[in-house]
Simulated assay, not measured.
Amino acid sequence: MAPDALKTRKRSDYKFELEYRTRWSDNDMYHHLNNSIYYFLFDSVVNTYLIKHCSLHPPTSSQIGLVVHSHCDYFAPIEFPAVVDLALRVVKLGKSSVTYEIGVFERGHADVKAVGEFVHVFVDRESRKPGKQGMANNLKEGLQNIFVDSAKL
């Protein structure tokens, strides 16, 4: 998606939110959140949703999600101290894969600071291959709850 379209994202475009309080160590030498922290945040919001709303229990689940793609478009910096709202939605839901979009908002500001994309492929823990039936029903049902039709984006 074109970065200009992503810049118009609002919190209401997403279906799940997670709060994060920045830490002094999140800053880089330019005094704003280091790029690697955004990927840490993406992983955190996605896995929090999977654990709380999709019955995923990573240490014992027979299926695991492998990240096969991720990227981030940055629009404005965030610096310590700040409270960040991580907003999550699913934009593509396949048989064994899911594409998430994450909006990063700073508390007290309406404009989106960054928008990320994160793609999981759910595979069998042992074989590391997608199962014939695709992802487990509990995963698919939970992810469907935050799905937003890409035709409406």
Rank of each mutant, 00 (worst) to 15 (best):
P3Y: 13
P3A: 11
P3F: 06
P3T: 12
A5W: 00
L6G: 11
L6T: 07
L6R: 08
K7H: 10
K7T: 08
T8L: 03
R9S: 14
R9Y: 13
K10H: 15
K10M: 11
S12M: 06
S12V: 13
Y14M: 08
Y14E: 11
F16T: 14
E17Q: 11
E19R: 03
E19G: 01
R21Q: 09
T22V: 00
R23N: 06
R23D: 00
R23M: 05
S25H: 08
D26V: 08
N27C: 00
D28I: 08
M29Y: 10
H32D: 09
L33G: 12
S36N: 08
I37P: 01
I37R: 02
Y38V: 04
Y38S: 00
F40S: 11
L41H: 06
L41I: 10
F42Y: 12
F42V: 04
D43F: 01
S44D: 04
V46M: 07
N47S: 02
N47K: 12
N47F: 05
T48R: 15
Y49G: 06
L50T: 02
K52N: 03
S55D: 13
H57D: 15
S61T: 13
S62I: 08
Q63S: 02
Q63N: 09
V67M: 12
V68Y: 14
S70N: 14
H71G: 12
D73W: 05
Y74F: 15
Y74P: 07
F75K: 07
F75V: 02
F75G: 11
A76N: 15
P77H: 01
P77L: 04
E79Q: 06
F80Y: 13
F80Q: 01
P81K: 09
P81M: 00
A82Y: 03
A82E: 07
V83C: 03
L86E: 00
A87Y: 10
A87L: 01
V91P: 00
L93F: 13
G94A: 11
G94W: 06
S96E: 03
G103T: 11
V104C: 12
F105E: 07
F105S: 06
E106R: 09
E106F: 08
R107G: 02
A110H: 13
A110S: 14
K113Y: 02
V115R: 05
V115C: 03
V115M: 10
G116A: 02
G116D: 00
E117T: 15
E117H: 11
V119T: 07
H120Y: 03
H120S: 12
F122L: 06
F122C: 05
V123K: 12
V123E: 10
R125G: 15
K129F: 15
Q133Y: 07
Q133A: 15
A136D: 03
A136Q: 05
A136C: 02
E141M: 01
E141R: 03
E141S: 01
G142H: 09
N145S: 14
N145C: 10
I146A: 01
V148I: 11
S150H: 12
A151K: 09
L153A: 15
